[in-house]
Structure formats: C-alpha cells, structure tokens
Design a protein around this nucleic acid. Structure first.
Lengths: 236, 236
DNA sequence: ATTGGTTTATTGGTTGAACCAGTAAACCAT
DNA sequence: ATGGTTTACTGGTTCAACCAATAAACCAAT
C-alpha cells in the first residue's frame, strides 16, 4: 500500500457551524454539566448567546434529538435526557471521541469479540454459492491492497450471515477503528496474518464448517485486538 | 397492571413536517427508487416540489445525513449513499417500520440472543456490591409492576457488565420491541416466568456464577423470543 | 499537450424577521 | 373542586436574502 499518506489521506472536513454547537452541547451533557431533566434555554436565547442564527441552533438540536440526548417538545421546551437511557449507538462515537474515550473503545472491542465470530458461524451455515464466489474473487486477486481486501472479506461474510444488523454493526466497527486499522496494515507481519486468515476462513465457509469459521474469526479478532490495544497505549 | 390501556397509552405524537419528509425520502432510498450515488435535486428545488420551506427540507436532510443515508457536500450537492455501507443502527428502526420489516426484527432477535447472555455473564463476574443491592431492591419489592421491574432488572445487569455499549444496545432492543413487550406481560404465565427469572438470575449474579447467569439469561430470552415471534405471526 | 490560475454558475450554509401552532400556567366561571 | 378560557411562552415553519465552498469552463504560461 502507498506509504506516508497519513497527512492528506483525509479531506480535513471543515466543521460546519451547527456541528460546532453539537459538540459544545454534547460535551456538557455527557460530562453531566447539563444534568438529565434540565431544561435548556429557548432556541432564541441559545441562538443569541452563541451569536448564531436560530435555524443553525435548530439543526444542532435536531442532531442531539436523534441520538436521544435531547427531548424537544413543541410549545414546551428542550430537555436534557439521561444518556444512560439512550438507544442510539452513535453515542459511542461521541464518547469515544472524548478525552478518556478509550474506555468506550474497549467496550466496543469486547462486544465485537462476541458478535463477529458468531457472524462468521452463521455465514458458514447460510452462505449462498454467490457469496462463496464473491469471497473467492476478492481473496484470490493479486492487484488489490490487502487492507481493502480485508474489509471486503468481512463485508461479504456479514452479508452471507443473512443478518442486516451484522452488516451495519460491522460498518460501525470499521468506521470506529478506521485509524487503528490503517496503522495495523502498516506492519508486514499483520498483513501476512490477514492473508492467512482470508485463506482459512474461505476454506471454512466453502466447506460450511461453521464451528471452524467461528474459531478462525475469533482468533484473528484476538490478534487484531491486541494490536489495537497496543497502539491505543502508545497514542491515547 | 392496568388493563385495556392500549388506546391512550401513547401520546399519539403528531408528526412534524420535516419528519414527514424524512419518511418519504427514507422510503425511496431503502426501496432502491433512489439508487446509491444518485444526486438529489438542490434543496431549493426539493423545497419547491414538496411545497415546503427550505429550512424544513434542510432539517430533514440533516437527519438522513446522520443515519448515513445521504452525503451532503457544501457547494456540490446531496448524494444518496449505499445503506449497506451505513454504520448507523438507527437504520434498523426504519427498516423494521417498513412493510416487510419483520425480517429486520428477526435479525435483531438473533443478535440479541448472542449479546445479552454474554452481558449477563460479564455482569456476574464484575458486579459490584452496589449493583447487587440495586438488583435486590428492584426484585424484592411488592408494589411494582412486573414489566417495569423486568426492564429495570435488565438495565442493572447491563450496567453491572461494566460495558456502556451493552447498556445502549439493551435500550435499543427495549425500544424496538416495546409493543411486543407490552403484549408479553399481558399473559399471566409470562409474568410468572419473569418472576422466576428474576429470582434465578439474582442468585447467579449474587454468587458470581457467571456461566449460570449466562445460561439463565439465554433460556429466558429463548422463551420470550418464541412469544414475540408468535405475536408477530398474528399481527404482521 | 499539460499544468496552474481565474472566472462563473451552482449549491449548500447562515442569517434576520416574521408568523403559525402547541403547551402550560394563570385565571375564571360553574 | 371541576372544567373551560385566556395568555404568555416556546418550538415549527416560512420568506427573502446573503455567505461560502465546489466544480466546470476558461485562460495563460510553460
């Protein structure tokens, strides 16, 4: 893969104004500065105190409503909800991005360690011949970058599991650990570990050996997890 | 519990205008009517064709951006993303609410069957004495409604697992199956099943028998799952 | 022919000032 | 005490602009 592209890899998305407001309020809610049940100032006041238009404030409040951090009641007001009662996984992204957010990342790793092997097991049981063909095409292609190959392998396995939620959660994991994955595939030994994994999981899924698929997935996850934790320790 | 409250149980939330727009676009994207990569008309045109103000359109588009169904690019335009690449669990809610949405609900049940017993196992291992006290207080209280009791039991177990993601996903499950849970606790035999479950899981967690906690949780989940599937078959 | 800078039309982002619509609290009549 | 009415406040929506980023067309220099 192309080395040294860490600087201009991302388009450095300039934050939009309403996203700034989201960050400010998010932080205050998650740190408890704004306790659950608290009633926020009216939109008009918020807009004035933030020196911003009311429409901009509204777009920010809307986002916080979507992640169930706020309760917006027409004619009444805006109330802070208890984030421990939220059912929005997006909250994890927010918490992960905070100062001591690595704890949340460890939580995600723990859940992934349980879910993804099970996903592989189901995939081995349920895979169609089309799934198998996709997997083979992805794995036995010389020109491709291993990292992209790896992501696609997981994606096809998720699809083969026949469970939409697995696909979505896999995407969620990939997004969350995007930076760590980039680092992971810098090391030659990790790349070789992945290639071996691709070979083995393909065989297991081809032969519909569900237990073995599960085991293979679990092993590679533990391996990758150790690498992630190590890089987290270095760059907190 | 109070019977016959099915009519006025919910405040029949009148949909806000921007939510209507969200529904319309969501449907078109998830059914493939709007294919990934498609560029939406400019906000101004959308507003005109929907006979609605641009600010209202924007709040709708914002929501769809949050669930990763749209990609909004300043100065460029609004593009439809591939929902199979979304990492937003909220999508499941949307899919579940569609015509053939029960498939998605079955997917969620399948994941829950894997995750929640593991959550109980961790809770038994990690529970603090405060967690245990909470659990005891909730379970051995005569005046409470069993359904609320049950939800709180699960909530404390999630908290005791020490993993924030479990708490959030549990909330997600509860919200998704809210209606089914209501039906579930109409039946006397189900209530008794839950009371026995509370007793057993409490003992397992108290004695920190993690394997047993896991097994007990798994059994009650399978039991409840069967009931949910049955009621799904009756009321699709 | 390619590169790099400039212009321009288009599109999302933000603003200000209104008005509509739902809520809760105070108030009043019964 | 109960039920209906008024009122002040708050979120929801609208309208009409202007700001800012993008892409495409264009142009100039190499």
């Amino acid at each position: 893969m192309m080395p040294g592209n860490t600087v201009f890899a991302q388009p450095l998305a300039r934050s939009r104004l309403h996203e700034e407001i989201v960050s400010i309020l998010q932080k205050q809610i998650l740190t408890g500065m704004l306790a659950p049940g608290t009633r926020l100032p009216p939109e008009r006041e918020l807009a004035e105190s933030l020196q911003v238009n009311r429409a901009t404030v509204r777009e920010a409040l809307r986002k916080l409503e979507h992640v169930e951090l706020l309760d917006i009641r027409h004619g009444d007001g805006v109330y802070v909800r208890d984030y421990m009662e939220s059912g929005s996984i997006d909250l994890i992204r927010v918490v992960s991005g905070m100062d001591d957010g690595n704890g949340a990342l460890l939580d995600v790793l723990e859940v992934r360690r349980i879910m993804v092997p099970e996903m592989a097991r189901l995939a081995a049981m349920r895979r169609s011949s089309a799934d198998l063909a996709d997997l083979e095409r992805i794995i036995f292609r010389e020109d491709s970058v291993v990292m992209e190959q790896d992501i696609q392998v997981h994606r096809v396995i998720a699809r083969a599991s026949g469970n939409l939620l697995y696909t979505i959660m896999l995407n969620f994991f990939n997004q969350l650990f995007r930076d760590h994955v980039l680092l992971y595939f810098e090391k030659k030994q990790n790349i070789e570990r992945s290639l071996a994994f691709h070979r083995d999981i393909f065989a297991a899924i081809r032969d519909q050996k569900s237990g073995e698929a599960r085991r293979i997935m679990q092993e590679v996850l533990l391996f990758a997890e150790a690498a992630v934790k190590e890089s987290m320790a270095r760059q907190p």
